[in-house]
């Protein structure tokens, strides 16, 4: 059962990742990324990391990607994105460098694990309680730094939006919004002309 589950999830993750890069329509790209993330969550489940799997789906598939879909659907998914000249050269270079790095990492450590039995499962490992304890003891500093980073990003987003006059009130629009209207407007009294505007 577990191998079947693993190969299904792995195939899903791979096909999703390939779809993100290969699909021309940004909307489908985003959906492929969602599929990839959900498949990754299934792989996490196989590793008994239930909390990580749930967090992965809630945070990435449920919140971040919904925003992506939102933006892509609004901005228009019809036209294809044009790739810049610089990226055309740099892209493969980066891909090659990443591939070499991954190969080094895999040949260096992961191949040794193939013949082994793998890490033993300790009951309670990966449970929310376990992860929470680690966050507040061993990994307190990285945890706090990461949350600070997210805070900076959030404030930065607000500042950027403000600078483009995104959050300031448009006076013309405000004037239209608060146009003085008779309190009888739209009522039967107005239609029969019973009372004029005050």
């Amino acid at each position: 059962m577990a191998p079947v589950f693993f190969f299904l999830a792995a195939l899903g993750a791979l096909s999703g990742a390939i779809g993100v890069v290969m699909l021309r329509n940004p909307f489908y790209s985003v959906l492929a990324l969602v599929f990839h993330l959900i498949s990754l969550a299934a792989l996490f489940l196989l590793l008994r990391a239930e909390f990580v799997a749930a967090a992965q789906v809630i945070v990435y598939a449920g919140a971040v990607m919904v925003l992506y879909v939102f933006v892509v659907a609004y901005v228009g998914s019809g036209e294809e994105l044009t790739s810049g000249g610089g990226l055309r050269v740099l892209g493969p270079v980066f891909a090659l460098v990443l591939a070499i790095e991954l190969c080094i990492a895999m040949l260096g450590s992961a191949l040794k694990g193939i013949s082994g039995k793998g890490a033993p499962y300790i009951p309670g490992f990966g449970s929310p309680r376990h992860i929470g304890t680690l966050f507040l003891t061993k990994y307190l500093f990285p945890f706090e730094v990461a949350s600070l980073l997210l805070l900076v990003a959030a404030i930065g987003a607000v500042v950027l939006a403000r600078r483009r006059r995104g959050l300031e009130a448009d006076p013309e629009y405000q004037a239209r919004l608060h146009k003085p209207v008779s309190h009888l407007a739209g009522s039967m009294a107005e239609s029969v002309g019973a009372r004029r505007d005050r």
């Binding site: 239930e50 909390f51 749930a54 789906v57 598939a61 449920g62 919140a63 919904v66 929310p128």
Partner: peptide, 13 residues
């Protein structure tokens, strides 16, 4: 073991 988080994950999907 992750109870409500599972529900929220499904709600996310």
């Amino acid at each position: 073991s992750v109870g409500p988080l599972y529900v929220f994950a499904l709600a996310g999907i």
